[in-house]
């Protein structure tokens, strides 16, 4: 059984094949995976919020898309991944509760997805797959042996992106 590395909310983990990195129960949060297919090194970041500059001070940069991504990127590079080979996949960003007067905070899933893409672009990392939006939770895992990013839901099935 390959090692299963668990990532909590507002956190990230990196590893190499044959490990799998998993994060459970994402709603409006986004799971951003990075993967270098040659060295089979990768990481998974579970962000809660889009933008650290729009929030009050936080001790945890991994909470935000803009500050979390460079942290994870740095760690996968340290493990031996090459930046020009890295590819990214993202999943999550749901709106769990439907409100007629949806405020910005309710739309945070959409904003998280946009921020994740923006951060990836800023660091020159190619986004090759995404499964975002909807109104349902997701459990996500990146299998570092294959680079397969698995998205599990409770009643929308399971898919690989």
């Amino acid at each position: 059984m390959p090692e299963l590395i668990r990532v909590g909310m507002a956190d990230y983990k990196v590893g190499k094949s044959p490990a799998t990195i998993i994060s459970y129960g994402l709603g409006s949060c986004i799971g951003i995976s990075l993967y270098d297919p040659q060295t089979k090194i990768g990481g998974l970041l579970h962000i809660m919020l889009p933008d650290s500059t729009q929030a009050r001070a936080s001790d945890n940069p991994a909470k935000f898309a803009d500050t979390g991504l460079p942290l994870m990127l740095n760690d996968v590079l340290k493990l031996g991944a090459a930046k020009n080979r890295l590819v990214a996949k993202i999943a999550g960003g749901a709106q769990m509760f439907a409100f007629s007067n949806a405020t910005d905070i309710m739309r945070v899933g959409v904003r998280n997805a946009e921020a994740a893409k923006k951060a990836l672009k800023a660091h020159g990392i190619k986004l090759i797959a995404e499964d975002t939006g909807g109104t349902y939770g997701r459990t996500v895992q990146i299998e570092l042996d294959t680079g397969v990013y698995k998205v599990k839901t409770i009643d929308k099935g399971e898919k690989e992106i």
Binding site: M9, Y24, G25, L26, G27, S28, C29, M48, A94, M96, F97, A98, F99, M106, T135, Y136, G137, R138, T139, I154
Partner: peptide
């Protein structure tokens, strides 16, 4: 508002 799903996802809100 109501949702049935994974606890983590629901607590997100």
């Amino acid at each position: 508002a109501l949702a049935m799903d994974m606890a983590g996802a629901i607590l997100n809100v």
